[in-house]
């Protein structure tokens, strides 16, 4: 499932999956602008069939945060 997450982020941000890690964020990925954040959250919601609260969206600063939120939604990401 982790692979699925990274593939999705890589596709939306248009960066190779190998360049992504837990600390990847708008600071480290130039294409991660605000619009791509919405796009990412939208696709995460449909891919993992869940919905993030507005707090979760605001608190999401990097990939580790996304994983944390997914885990809180009961979505297990095994490597």
């Amino acid at each position: 499932m982790s692979k699925k997450l990274y593939t999705l982020i890589g596709r939306i941000m248009d960066v190779p999956v190998t360049e992504l890690n837990d600390n990847s964020s708008p600071e480290t990925i130039p294409s991660w602008d605000s619009f791509n954040s919405y796009l990412l959250l939208d696709e995460l919601e449909s891919e993992f069939q869940t919905e993030f609260s507005i707090d979760e969206v605001v608190e999401t600063k990097n990939i580790a945060d996304i994983k944390k939120h997914l885990k809180n939604h009961g979505i297990i990401l095994d490597d």
Binding site: S34, F35, Y38, L39, L41, D42, S46, F52, I54, V57
Partner: peptide
């Protein structure tokens, strides 16, 4: 509603 609140997106991305 979330897309609207965050980015004044009035037609959802999908």
């Amino acid at each position: 509603i979330k897309q609207f609140l965050f980015g004044d997106i009035k037609i959802s991305l999908d």
